[in-house]
């Protein structure tokens, strides 16, 4: 009887030990994986921090390359090269008045000789993709980059492109159909940037500062007049 008790005892003890071990392995394994995940997620930061004991960079290699005895002459030569580079970079600066248009913030800055002379709100492309019923598609975004004022127009007339009809659920008329011409919707002035893009006025002044156009740049009346007067044909327009 006593022997059986002992056997029972040791088998139960073995069982409970196994259970405990299993719990330790599973529980510990989970904690271990969590720790590994934390290390992995913060790997770059940990790597960075571990660099603290490395010695800082020294100047000796630079001294050896240039030669200590030549360093004065070398400095002068580099300074001269910098002056030349500066002149080359200056050649890129626009002469006269130019305008910078920000499509992310829908604002503009009119510049003269590198200084801002007028700032204001405008509206640029809405980033709407209009899908026509006959697989045609138009993306209403303002192009970015450097442009030039190609033409200046007073009292512009809008010749509606195809998308203007498609957008309103209308049939697209022939190229020179009278229904294509709208008067007074572009404000008092317009400046052409090429490929059909214009800087012009708007009837929807409450939307200035918002991206709502079909790609053109819209301005309020006073800003438009000032910009029209300041910019000449050939003036640069930077859109970003």
């Amino acid at each position: 009887m006593k022997e059986m008790d002992d056997m029972n005892y040791s088998s139960k003890q073995g069982e409970s030990r196994l259970k405990a071990m299993l719990m330790v392995v599973v529980g510990g394994g989970i904690i271990s994986l969590l720790l590994c995940w934390a290390i992995t997620a913060n790997f770059n930061r940990l790597h960075e921090t571990a660099l603290w004991f490395k010695s800082k960079a020294e100047l000796k290699a630079t001294a050896q390359r240039i030669g200590l005895e030549k360093i004065g002459n070398y400095q002068q030569a580099v300074e001269k090269e910098l002056q030349t580079l500066d002149k080359k970079l200056d050649a890129f600066q626009p002469v006269g008045t130019y305008i910078i248009i920000n499509t992310a913030g829908n604002d503009f800055i009119l510049m003269q000789e590198g200084k801002a002379i007028r700032e204001g709100m405008c509206s640029t492309g809405s980033y709407t993709v209009l899908k026509g019923n006959d697989k045609q598609q138009w993306t209403f975004k303002t192009p970015r980059g450097m442009f030039k004022i190609l033409n200046k127009i007073k009292d512009p007339v809008w010749k509606k492109p195809d998308w203007a009809f498609v957008e309103e659920g209308m049939k697209v008329p022939s190229a020179n159909h009278p229904s294509r011409y709208e008067y007074g919707v572009l404000g008092d002035y317009a400046m052409a940037l090429g490929q059909g893009y214009l800087i012009h006025g708007t009837l929807y002044k409450r939307y200035l500062g918002m991206p709502v156009t079909h790609g053109c740049v819209r301005m309020g009346d006073e800003d438009l007049e000032a910009v029209f007067k300041a910019l000449k044909i050939g003036s640069k327009v930077y859109i970003y």
């Binding site: 000796k60 290699a61 001294a63 050896q64 360093i71 580099v78 910098l82 500066d86 970079l89």
Partner: peptide, 30 residues
């Protein structure tokens, strides 16, 4: 190439070298 350990730099030389490094960085940037 690693610099020879024999080069020892005075504080004045170090200042000049720092200026040269600044100029070289500026040149690369421009």
């Amino acid at each position: 190439e690693t610099a020879s350990a024999s080069i020892s730099l005075s504080s004045e030389q170090k200042a000049i070298l720092k200026k040269v490094i600044e100029l070289e960085n500026e040149k690369a940037y421009r």
